[in-house]
Amino acid sequence: MGIMDKARIYSPWLYHLHCGGCNGCDIETLAALAPRFDVERFGVQLVPSPRHADILLTTGCVPKQFIPMVKRIYEQVPAPKVVVAVGSCACGGSLFYDDAPENYAILGHPDLLIPVDVYVPGCAPKPEAIINGVVQGILKLAEKRSKK
């Protein structure tokens, strides 16, 4: 394993993409970053701009108004990137998702728009589960090579 691959594993930066959830998953996500669990000990940092991120952490079922934003944010993350879907809504749309008749306002889950690499189920998942999801994301990140 080269030094660049190591660096990729050692410093995963998260961008927290909230798309239309109830905020339960967001609270748990922030709890994972707060002093009790403190993922910064493994080099994980929450970054404010998607252009700085390695891991896109999405929560919530995607309302139809959010579709262009979610696509755009995904495209703004430079490769190599990994998407971690946190919570039941982000994994399968939960109670908001219907195949037929289609919900007039809710798309369902972000997998319909962007390729999701890791799913973290739970309503809301515990911080331990989110950290595990991030670790799985890091392992996937290590396999990917940058395009440029």
Partner: peptide, 11 residues
């Protein structure tokens, strides 16, 4: 490591 990782990413 942060800097090295950024050098390995798409610009």
């Amino acid at each position: 490591y942060d800097i090295l990782k950024l050098y390995g990413k798409e610009t």
